[in-house]
Design a protein around this nucleic acid. Structure first.
Lengths: 334, 334
DNA sequence: TTTAGCACTCTTGCTATATGACTGCTAACT
DNA sequence: AGTTAGCAGTCATATAGCAAGAGTGCTAAA
């Protein structure tokens, strides 16, 4: 979509103003504030034009204008200032990210919390999708006589473990054999490889009892297909945003957070950076989701996403995300 | 507190009525409905008496009565019907509890979900407090050259595991030695025993390098002191309850759920069954919490709690809890 | 192409008023 | 003595009407 310069400035002014005030924006209110150098009548004429193109909407005949989804989209793609951080915010972020941590997970939590604190929106972190990772090794540890712990190490260093229970006693020799079998077959393979065909292979090759193999495969596939762990921060805080004064919308929001599948699908994308605005995605409705790959010193730690109302402060949020993303990837840990 | 029969009936009527309508209860509205066999004037006279004793409150001079915390307490202790389930509810609960499950945890989740569905309140399950359990065995598994997984088995069969990272390589021999050391020292001890003194003991006894022991102890104590895992269901559903029309109260509620410490403290009690009503407990404010020990076939799986507004339907909730608790303990798994 | 001016629309806040739901009290009744 | 009818008084709630104000769209002039 092509817009002349003045239209762009007016659209930008309206989105900014609406984000700050959450009230329909009138032609008069923005001319001085955004130095538009024309009269309110001119702004009004431009507004009808912008409305015709679907970038603005009205709540009633004599009301001011509100950005439409398409309007936000244009704003995010073309008009955004993605360096909208003041010195105090930068200082705060830095101080938080420099906390001493033992594990990467800790750092992810800190980043998530920090984002939620600065933006006042709900922030979600998920681990990388394991099924795309390759298996480095599987270890089996006998616990008592009828329980086995399987520990799966991937090439990127993720560790998954699960407990397997048997109806009958299992010996250490059996476990050793199992270990050799599984590792022979699975080393270097994708985690998603672990499924039923292996069962047959092992039974064939080793003439091993099916009732021992079955629970192992079952449990391992279960763990791998489990939803990734999820860390969520700022639900309560999000309710401070004025759109949640209506209990209806608050419920919708909590429903969205509960409905994990949609969020997982959206977060689990390959691209580094994504903005989903309102009804662009069915199910997201009145909310927007911004995601970025959580990479610390080059290592993929999953994805972090921020959910807020469609009228969220995109400039601020995207600025915060880009800054934090960059800082994390610099490798503060090293 | 002693109350004559009629006062009891009137209090019961008021609590029931208020729970159902969430509106101040007038003298006139209950006489026919609860067959009180007297006039509204008489009921009014009794009401002033009940108010004097602190069991009822008024919202303004000419309003109906609302139960006070003390009123709810009396109701719960003396007037409650704890067998308030209809045949369909019982059928539904049974069908849910008879689901096939591989693990006890699964059953806890099902029970939690079922409670939330039937009562429409938020339900929380926590695992038993591990620090009171005795250690059966500790296993160490070397993962790569600088990582160790410690697996702690307790006498009741709980399994906790944690990953320990080192700055330098660790050999299998070292791990074997560690294993012997830790098991010698800790077998049969309470999990809470694992803390700093052991560090000194091991260094002394085995002349073992402190920089190897330290991270192990640190990580193990961390895992043991970690909040127990928590399973929470029905937050969104809870917001259906009319008191949450006010966004203020909804925020308070979500704040309460976020403030895990209070809930953990209340859930982590020794008694089988507890009812905490509103401001009886500081911090609980406008909400009530009902807890019961989650025992499946005699085995302690932690505690389950239901949180709702003070005017929650105690009869229903307590009936559901008692029934489910009894069914679980019967040992459906066997 | 821009802008001043004006009629028209719609929201918002305020006030006044009527209505109805309670209670508490008094006096009569059983 | 306990119970009840009746009534005055209190308070919340709903409604209507009105005035003010904020915006827009349109027209005509600059």
């Amino acid at each position: 979509m092509e817009l002349d310069n003045r239209k762009k400035r007016i659209l930008q002014a309206i989105v900014n103003e609406y984000i700050n005030t959450i009230e329909p924006v009138s032609s008069n209110s923005i001319i001085k504030k955004y130095n538009l150098d024309c009269s309110s009548a001119t702004v009004r004429n431009e507004m009808v034009e912008l409305e015709k193109r679907g970038l603005l909407e009205k709540t009633h005949t004599s009301s001011g204008r509100v950005p439409s989804t398409k309007g936000y989209r244009f704003y995010v793609d073309e008009l955004l200032n993605d360096n909208d951080l003041d010195i105090n915010e930068i200082k705060y972020i830095n101080s938080r990210l420099q906390s001493k941590v033992d594990e990467m997970e800790e750092l992810t939590k800190i980043a998530t919390n920090t984002i939620s604190e600065i933006t006042h929106y709900t922030t979600i972190a998920i681990e990388p999708n394991t099924s795309r990772q390759k298996i480095e090794e599987i270890k089996f540890v006998l616990l008592g006589s009828r329980m086995l712990m399987a520990i799966i190490l991937t090439e990127v260093g993720t560790i998954k473990e699960t407990i397997i229970k048997f109806d009958q006693d299992v010996t250490q020799e059996q476990v050793d054999t199992l270990s050799i079998m599984f590792n022979n077959k699975l080393k270097g393979k994708l985690l998603s490889t672990i499924n039923m065909p292996i069962e047959q292979y092992i039974v064939q090759q080793m003439n091993y009892r099916l009732d021992v193999i079955k629970p192992i495969i079952k449990q391992i596939t279960k763990v791998l297909n489990d939803e990734s762990k999820l860390y969520l921060k700022g639900t309560e805080q999000a309710l401070d945003n004025p759109e949640f004064k209506s209990n209806e919308i608050a419920k919708k929001f909590l429903g969205l957070l509960d409905e994990r599948n949609l969020i997982f699908d959206l977060l689990d994308s390959d691209s580094d950076f994504n903005v989903y605005i309102g009804n662009e995605v069915s199910g997201l409705n009145d909310f927007s989701l911004i995601t970025f790959k959580n990479r610390v010193a080059g290592k993929d730690l999953g994805t972090i996403g921020i959910i807020g109302p469609t009228r969220m402060d995109y400039s601020k949020v995207i600025s915060v995300l880009k800054y934090i993303s960059r800082e994390l990837n610099k490798g503060l840990l090293e």
